[in-house]
């Protein structure tokens, strides 16, 4: 369920949509659910931006490594 992919906001239209780039694929994505600005990394599901991405995967893994230390 719920295929979603992070992309980068290239343009914000005044029609409720934004142009989001995924390594060269451009999707017109609805932006009604998230406050965004150009350059934001966003998660897109079914043509709709559902969240901004707070950190890249590498950063996320680093923070998880630190958090998971608590278990050992």
């Amino acid at each position: 369920m719920c295929v979603a992919l992070p992309g980068i906001v290239k343009e914000i239209g005044d029609d409720g949509y934004a142009t989001v780039d995924f390594s060269g694929n451009t999707v017109r994505a609805a932006r009604g659910l998230v406050d965004i600005k150009v350059g934001d990394h966003v998660l897109v599901h079914a043509g709709c931006i559902i969240q901004t991405v707070q950190q890249e995967e590498a950063e996320e893994l680093q923070s998880l490594f630190e958090e998971l230390q608590a278990f050992s």
Partner: peptide, 12 residues
């Protein structure tokens, strides 16, 4: 090609 990789990612 990274564009094809993400294209696949978008459409599952």
């Amino acid at each position: 090609n990274p564009a094809v990789r993400d294209f696949c990612g978008l459409l599952g």
